[in-house]
Design a protein around this nucleic acid. Sequence first.
DNA 1: GTCTATACCCCGATAGAC
DNA 2: GTCTATCGGGGTATAGAC
Lengths: 203, 203
Amino acid sequence: MNDKTRQAQAVRPDSSLGTRERIVRTTSRLMQRQGYEGTAIKQISREAGVALSSVYHFFPSGKQELAVEAVRHADQEFAGILREALAGEDDPADAMIACTRILATHLRDSDWLDGCPITATALETAGRVPEIQQAVTRSFEHWRGLVTEHLRHTGIAENDVLDLAHTVINTLEGAELAAQVSRSDKPLEIAGRHLARLINTYR
Amino acid sequence: MNDKTRQAQAVRPDSSLGTRERIVRTTSRLMQRQGYEGTAIKQISREAGVALSSVYHFFPSGKQELAVEAVRHADQEFAGILREALAGEDDPADAMIACTRILATHLRDSDWLDGCPITATALETAGRVPEIQQAVTRSFEHWRGLVTEHLRHTGIAENDVLDLAHTVINTLEGAELAAQVSRSDKPLEIAGRHLARLINTYR
DNA sequence: GTCTATACCCCGATAGAC
DNA sequence: GTCTATCGGGGTATAGAC
């Protein structure tokens, strides 16, 4: 009756990495799929292939500290995906389509398991674990900044750019959630078209 | 060091309700704030003011069955909020503003704790607990249907209405998440304006 | 239906040998 | 740094009296 037994897909990262890095990556992936509360340190040590004591060696103050580090890692990972999608398209409307495409691909390739890596953790800890909430807030700001930067060279007024960056990130978040739950890329495909259309009304 | 001790705001529902209803409502509220994994049945019984055995009396097969019922309750609750916001405005663009306003009010009044009641649970259980995932999927479809219905009497083509309903719900989800994490109604305010603008491009 | 008590397990975290 | 072993507590779930 333990839900953990439903865990299907392996998570073990490249064994050539250092121990600390393997722990962080494994934690990040598990929190992406199961959230903060649903991820046990024992499971992390098992899936990372390291001893439990090693986890506490690198993260002496425990789970919370490790979670913050995992969110920071996820921040960089997701930023890389965004940057890649945005860099390939000069036109901002095309860039939106590219973003939703790449997110859909990642989702499908992981059998709809790997959506935004921090959303589950963000919701579980909002208002209850300030250290994690702060790391989450910084990630969202970081990602929004990437979109802002991309929209800035398009002739759109600065105020509109800042507002658009909010809605771009938030709509991507919502559409990815819907795609994950419904196991379909349709929500993302629609979101891409609508974001492109919305941006074009400002040009 | 127990995160549960950070639990600040009380949750206890009206004591005039039947026991079963109190259990479901308490579960729904706790899962909204802490997710599925973060919510213990012992905490539910404590906050609902009922014996642990009563929980198992009404939900003999345990936590999962109770969670499905809680998602169904949250479905109705959130649908009520949406319906209320949509019913007050004939113009669909105005209705978007009304939706984001009412969501922002609920969030602020709960000290930014009560966002979408099922998102955290949805993400934790996606791909791992099919029974819950199915209840979540139905809720999203239900809410999307309410938006579809509202947009249908506006002269917008049926295909566009169906697509718009997706993005309306998904953008509301994403903006509410961002508002909750950043403790600000700004993401929702922006989302309202952008959804109104997007809809107006179809008229 | 609700009470108390408890079985059994996994949780986060720690200790001390090596 | 990693090993094994373990502590105290809380997790889900159950039993049986009332």
